[in-house]
Simulated assay, not measured.
Amino acid sequence: MLWLLTHDRYALLGSGGVSREVSRLYHGWYGVLRHGAFPSGDRLWQYPPGAGGVLLSPALLPGLTYFQAFVTLTLLTDALIALALARAGTRPDRSLGGAALWVAGLPLLLHIPLARYDVQVTAFAMLSLLLLGRSGRASGVFAALGALVKVWPALALLGTPRGRTTRAAWTAAALTTATLLALVTALFRAPFDFLRQQGGRGVQIESLGGTVLILARRAAGRPMRTRYQYGAVEFVGPHVRTVALSSLALTALAFALLLLWRLRARRWTPATPYDAALAAVLLFTVTSRVISPQYMVWLVGLAAVCLTSRHTTQRPVAPLILAATAVSTVEFPAYYAEVVAGTWAGCALMSLRNGLLVCAAVLSFTRLWRSGRPVPGQGLAGSWTGGWRLLNG
C-alpha cells in the first residue's frame, strides 16, 4: 500500500489524485484549524467538529511533512486495529478470523486508506464494539469520539444489550458528546458550518441512486450531465432531486427497520452488538446519496469485528463486502473516467459494486432480524427469562 501511494502518479492509480487529498485539501484545512477556526463557507468541508482533531494530529510529529505525518499516523492506527482484533480473537469462544479479514481486506483498497482519515474513524467504532463486553462506559466514549468525527460510529451502540450496559454506554456517549462540543465551541469559530454544506449535497455518480440515473439515461440515449461539487462528481439536471429525495426516504425507512428490530429483538448473543452495527452501516451506506470508495474501510472494519466472535450471524456477509471492496478499486481510481463518462463499462462496474452492497445489506439485516427471535421451544416465558438475565448482567 505504501509503495502504491508513492507511485500514484500512474493513470491506473489515479494520476496523483489520491495523495493530493492529503497534501492539498487536508493540509489547507489544517492551516485554518490551527488558527482557531473551522473552514467557513467551504463547500468541501462537510464534517463534524471532531474531524478537526484528526486533521490537526499530524502536528504531533513535527519532524515530518504534513503528508508524511498523516500517513504515519494512519499506519499506526492500522497497526492498533490489527492488534486489537488479534487480542480479541485469542479470547475463549473467539476467532482470529477478524484480524485476518482486516489485514487481508484493507489492501484491496490499494493506497486509498492511507490517504483518507477513514481508518481513524473506523478505529473509534471498532474499539467501541470490542470494549463493550468489558466496559459500557468506555464503549460509549469511543462511539461518541467517532461520531464527532464522521457521525456513523454512533451506530456502534445500536445493538448494546438492554439494561445496565445500554444505560452506561448511551449515557457516556451523550456526556462525552456534550462536553467535547462545548469545548470545541469555546475554542474554535464556526464549528457547525458543516451543516450548511452537507444539506446541499446532490446525487454522487457512485451512489446507488447514481447507478439508477446512469442506467436510465443510457437506456434513454440521453447524454450524461455531471458536475464536480461538494467534493464529488454529482449528477445535475432532471430527476436528480427526485432520486435524492428517494434516497433520504430510504434512509428513513432503514432507520425505522433498525428501530423496529431493536424493539422486537428478544435474543442477544455476544455478537449481537457487532452484527447490528454492521447491518446498520450497510443499510445507511446503500441508501446514502454518496458512496465513496473509502466508505468500504468502514464495512471491512465492522465485518472484521463480527468475525472475532464465533456467534456472529454475518459470516456470509463478509465475502460480499470483500468482493464489493475489490470492485470499488477497479472503479476508482483505475476506471473512474469510464464511470464519469457513463460508458457501458462504467455502468457495469457501478452496477456490480452497488449490487453486491445491496445484497450484503439485505442479507445482513435479514440474518440480524432472525437472530433476535426466541429460540424455538423457548416460548414467551423463556424470552422473558432471557431478558431478565440481560438486565441483571
Rank of each mutant, 00 (worst) to 15 (best):
199 G>W: 12
201 R>K: 07
185 T>A: 08
174 A>P: 11
195 L>G: 01
202 G>V: 05
170 W>I: 12
168 A>R: 15
179 T>P: 05
196 R>E: 12
207 S>P: 07
197 Q>F: 13
162 R>T: 10
206 E>A: 03
180 L>Q: 04
163 G>N: 06
179 T>G: 11
174 A>L: 15
191 P>G: 00
157 L>R: 03
175 L>G: 01
178 A>C: 13
158 L>K: 01
192 F>C: 04
184 V>E: 04
177 T>C: 15
206 E>S: 04
178 A>F: 13
156 A>E: 00
185 T>P: 02
156 A>Q: 05
165 T>S: 12
188 F>A: 00
207 S>Y: 03
180 L>R: 09
175 L>V: 10
205 I>Q: 02
169 A>L: 11
157 L>N: 02
199 G>A: 14
183 L>N: 03
189 R>V: 04
200 G>M: 04
158 L>E: 00
164 R>Q: 06
197 Q>T: 15
164 R>E: 02
183 L>Y: 07
187 L>H: 05
162 R>V: 12
158 L>V: 06
176 T>W: 08
178 A>E: 10
168 A>I: 03
192 F>Y: 04
194 F>N: 02
165 T>A: 12
200 G>Y: 07
200 G>K: 06
205 I>V: 14
190 A>Q: 14
193 D>H: 15
191 P>L: 05
171 T>I: 09
170 W>R: 12
204 Q>D: 10
199 G>N: 08
206 E>C: 02
175 L>Q: 01
175 L>A: 02
178 A>Q: 13
203 V>Y: 01
184 V>S: 03
179 T>C: 13
207 S>H: 04
183 L>G: 08
187 L>S: 01
188 F>T: 01
168 A>S: 14
180 L>F: 07
182 A>S: 06
199 G>F: 11
175 L>S: 02
179 T>M: 13
198 Q>R: 15
186 A>P: 09
185 T>Y: 11
186 A>L: 15
171 T>P: 03
166 T>D: 03
179 T>N: 08
154 A>M: 14
175 L>K: 05
199 G>V: 08
179 T>L: 14
173 A>S: 13
203 V>C: 02
202 G>Q: 08
197 Q>Y: 14
205 I>C: 02
190 A>H: 15
173 A>W: 10
155 L>W: 03
181 L>I: 07
190 A>T: 12
181 L>F: 09
189 R>N: 07
186 A>R: 15
207 S>E: 00
167 R>W: 08
167 R>Y: 01
171 T>D: 05
180 L>T: 07
207 S>Q: 02
205 I>H: 05
202 G>M: 11
156 A>V: 06
197 Q>W: 15
175 L>P: 06
189 R>H: 13
201 R>H: 08
157 L>D: 01
174 A>F: 10
190 A>C: 13
163 G>R: 09
202 G>Y: 08
199 G>K: 14
177 T>N: 11
191 P>S: 05
196 R>S: 14
198 Q>I: 14
184 V>W: 11
179 T>H: 11
185 T>W: 13
158 L>S: 00
157 L>G: 03
161 P>I: 05
181 L>W: 11
174 A>R: 08
187 L>I: 08
178 A>V: 12
202 G>D: 05
164 R>K: 14
